[in-house]
Amino acid sequence: MQDEKEFIFSLLNPQTQNQAFQRLMQEYQKPLYNHVRNIVLSHDDADDVLQNTFVKVFQNLKSFKGESKLFTWMYRIATNEALTFLNQKAKKSGISSVELQNKAIDNLKADLYFDGNEIQIKLQKAIATLPEKQQLVFKMKYFEDLKYEEISEIVGTSVGALKASYHHAVKKIEAFVTTD
């Protein structure tokens, strides 16, 4: 993307805003969709969360001070939106977040927009056994191929702690898949 400051300026300028926002969507909708989908699992939920994310991004552009990268800022919004969405959904259904996640994994087999086999479902089940933050780190590193530095900026944890977290997550997943 062109110089980020220049791009942010075009996003804030009413004359260039629409065009710039369309470019922003083109650039980020796929990676953000994957990020959100990895958290919420269902396509319909991911669609809702992605829309909410872009609406929030659009509404808060004025308050974006450029202290972090646009990419980091948007990923942070998407993560918060996805986690809030899951918590609210669990609350509405009267079940815990873990139960909701297990239910979503069970529904994957029937999901039109899931093209996975047994090992992929087993991997999702293994991920579901991890604490929330470890899940997030594992998904961002393993599925989304983000660098530790990028994850560090998004989740606000040091690179060293993220490496340790990922290492623990991998060990737990391997143990789960081996014994399951």
Binding site: Q26, Y33, R37, Y113, D115, G116, Q120, F143
Partner: peptide, 23 residues
């Protein structure tokens, strides 16, 4: 191991239109 997640055809093209309408 890939995540196995897919999207409907033309999802991202339609997404932009739907989002602009919503905004």
């Amino acid at each position: 191991i890939e995540s196995g997640f897919k999207t409907p055809d033309n999802y991202f093209e339609n997404f932009q239109t739907a989002l602009i309408e919503r905004l």
